[in-house]
């Protein structure tokens, strides 16, 4: 496989999955993102991003138990994988290293 890519929104979702460790499922991720971003996010966008990063192997999923709410539907919990973590690290390194190259400029 060639270098896996990670879109901006996908990266955010991946970060949120990592942050919510073991408690990350659709609605939790959505709400976490909305809180951090301070804007409305559509659930469909979250799910599409989740599916993509799962296909890429950055997260894995498991089903939770059946509960009374959610119409008896199981939650699907996402956990970041080692690959996903490395990807996040790499992204972070990259951004950080570029950021560090920024000359000290003062904006008055």
């Amino acid at each position: 496989m060639t270098q896996q890519s990670l879109g901006e929104f996908e990266e955010l979702v991946l970060l949120m999955v990592a942050a919510l460790h073991d408690e990350a499922y659709g609605v939790a991720i959505l709400e976490g993102l909305e809180e951090k971003l301070k804007k409305k996010v559509n659930i469909s966008a979250v799910h599409v991003a989740l599916k993509r990063i799962e296909d890429k192997g950055f997260v894995k999923s498991r089903f939770g138990g059946i509960t009374e709410d959610r119409g008896g539907r199981r939650k699907k919990f996402y956990v970041i994988t080692a690959v996903g973590k490395r990807m996040l690290d790499a992204q972070y390194e990259l951004r950080n290293s570029i950021y560090k190259q920024i000359p000290k400029i003062s904006f008055g």
């Binding site: 499922y25 659709g26 609605v27 959505l30 659930i43 799910h47 599916k51 089903f63 709410d69 959610r70 119409g71 539907r73 199981r74 939650k75 699907k76």
Partner: peptide, 15 residues
């Protein structure tokens, strides 16, 4: 494969 979990999320949000 996605139906159950997404439907659950939808329900939760709906509630």
């Amino acid at each position: 494969k996605l139906r159950d979990s997404i439907e659950g999320d939808l329900m939760e949000l709906y509630e």
